[in-house]
Write a protein that binds this DNA or RNA. Structure first.
Length: 521
RNA sequence: CGGGGCGUAGCGCAGCCUGGUAGCGCACUUGGUUCGGGACCAAGGAGUCGCAGGUUCGAAUCCUGUCGCCCCGACCA
């Protein structure tokens, strides 16, 4: 082999990435490797249920903190309702039963006994009425609301619950779809339809704001078609985000339930004229799925990228200690810098700083923090201390791209820098979505746009598809079903943003505005 | 629940077709040389080959069953 052949071979090698495979090579596996490398979560011994590890749970805590403040600012209060729901409650709303019956965990016994050395449910302890583990709490919360509401003066009732729910899914994926997941569910009751609709839209807006401002994840607000509606809802609204495989992720939902659940649960009140009427209710929720959305919106082939407002640690200080005699001096300096940074405020909270003083090689340490997605890495060694400077690496830039800054300038500008990273991530995600969103006006182009390249093996992941398509649509559910069968593509939402009327390319019929089509999670 | 792939050291894999009782890389430990950095050299520790049966003198390897994981499909936040 000639020397030029050797160098050619080297030249053809892919650049080394911390995550193998890369997004382009195998997207679903890349996703799992990012979670593993960042130490966010792992599968548990219970099928379909995950263990959320500290770094992943800290992300959830930050999501909770941000959303909870927004809920409270809009007049909501937290409460807690039972994990178990009597089976008969679920039967009260016909569409609701239909929607959830297939995926319920059912509790039938209250005691175990040992038979031939094995624990089995005691037949004598069989429950009169089986309990289901809540898949959502409309019915059990409705029962409380029925007791609490007597007069129009009791309304509106604005309640939120942070809880876990169980839906026995066929196929699960960490964060995106697990049998048990953590979420919040808001439940409200109102005197009029108008007020309930206003609430539904307000909370959708809160979700959109949170997704964009906190998670740096651009979303499209819109309404679901009848086929995608929540079981029992009159209208379902959602925020939809584009992942890096260009699939859509439903990141949050807000439902206008009309009087359906009020009638089912007997939520009645006397209005200001003395008439006995049913309340109008809403429900809205987001779940740990948001973490999946965050991972797939921002992360790259070197691992997780946390938007600063959600990052468990926003700045990681890595002491550079070459000689043992430098150790005390460098660590003391780093601790002082940590204190100083923690005294500064970013986005309304003290900056979260961590000094990584573990006894290991600096390079390994830096890469671990890259894989965990810490927004800013600071390397501080004797030379920096002498110059009164720090060496900064930003997670939104390349791993080797590092810049020296004076300590004072860094501290003074830290909030600005964090916001720059936050903004850069949002801008990047928005540009990506725009780049892979296309207005389409003919059926042929639509089918060509969503046509999958052939797979080599059946076990290969679905090839990355084109993205979002914006087309006119006459709203026919049968047509939507046909397209889903043909292409696995659905209407993700009818955007709330104003649009121009036009012609449905599939039927030639008039259409009020363009809708968003995509493959989805 | 259907189709496909895969379970061998903490992690990633080879060996399996053509049975002869286990190997590589990373990680780990120790020593040395390095070191503003995902180091190098040397030595070393670590595996009932997913589990259970069967065939055989002998099974990681062949057969049957079973459990789990991943991908694809149907269902869904």
């Amino acid at each position: 082999m000639s020397s030029s052949a050797v160098s050619n071979e080297k030249h053809n090698e892919k650049p080394k990435t911390a995550i193998v495979p890369t997004r382009a090579d195998n997207y679903p596996e890349w996703y799992l490797k990012v979670i593993d490398a960042a130490d966010l979560a792992e599968n548990s011994d219970v099928r379909g249920c995950m263990v959320i590890k500290p770094w992943g749970y800290a992300l959830w805590e930050n999501i909770q903190r941000g959303l909870d403040a927004m809920f409270k600012a809009t007049g909501h209060v937290n409460a807690y309702f039972p994990l178990f729901i009597p089976l008969s409650f679920l039967e009260k709303e016909a569409a609701h039963v239909e929607g959830f019956a297939k995926e319920c965990a059912v509790v039938t016994h209250s005691r175990l006994i040992t038979v031939d050395g094995k624990l089995v449910p005691d037949p004598k302890s069989k429950l009169e009425e089986p309990l289901i583990v809540r898949p959502t709490s409309e019915t059990i919360i409705g029962a409380s609301f029925a007791k609490w509401v007597k007069s129009y003066r009791d309304l509106p009732l604005l309640i939120n619950q942070w809880a876990n729910v169980v839906r026995w899914e066929m196929r699960t994926r960490l964060f995106l779809r697990t049998a048990e997941f953590l979420w919040q569910e808001g439940h409200t009751a109102h005197a009029t339809s108008e007020e309930a609709v206003e609430e539904t839209m307000k909370m959708l807006g809160v979700y959109a704001e949170f997704a964009e401002q906190w998670m740096a994840m651009p979303v499209i607000q819109g309404e679901k078609t009848a086929g995608e509606r929540f079981p029992g809802a009159v209208q379902t609204f959602c925020i939809e985000a584009m992942m890096q495989d260009r699939k859509a992720l439903q990141a949050g939902t807000s439902h206008f339930l009309g009087q359906n659940f009020a009638k089912a649960s007997g939520i009645e009140f006397q209005d200001d004229k003395g008439a006995l009427v049913h309340a109008w209710t809403t429900s809205w929720g987001v779940s740990t799925r948001l973490i999946g959305g965050m991972i797939m919106t921002h992360s790259d082939d070197d691992g997780l990228i946390c938007p600063p407002r959600l990052a468990p640690e926003q700045i990681v200080i890595i002491p550079v200690i070459q000689k043992p005699e430098d150790r005390d001096r460098v660590l003391t300096y780093c601790k002082a810098l940590e204190k100083e940074l923690e005294a500064t405020i970013y986005a309304g909270s003290p900056v979260r700083v961590h000094v990584d003083a573990r006894d290991m090689r600096g390079g390994d340490k830096a890469w671990q923090w890259i894989k965990k997605g810490a927004p800013i890495r600071l390397e501080v060694g004797p030379r920096d201390i002498d110059n009164d400077s720090v060496f900064m690496g930003r997670r939104d830039k390349g791993p080797k791209e590092k810049t020296g800054v004076t300590r004072a300038a860094f501290v003074a500008g830290v909030a600005t820098t964090l916001q720059e990273i936050q903004d850069a991530l949002f801008a990047r995600a928005l540009a990506f979505r725009d780049q892979h969103t296309k207005q389409i006006d003919t059926k042929e182009e639509f089918y060509a746009y969503f046509a999958d390249p052939p797979k080599k093996k059946q076990s290969d992941p679905t090839p990355i598809h084109a993205g979002f398509a914006l087309t006119h649509f006459n709203g026919d559910p049968a047509l939507e079903t046909k397209i889903k069968e043909d292409l696995k593509v659905t209407v993700r939402c009818i955007p709330l943003a104003p649009g121009e009327p036009g012609t449905c390319p599939f039927t030639g019929q008039p259409s009020a505005k363009r809708v968003v089509w995509a493959k989805s999670y």
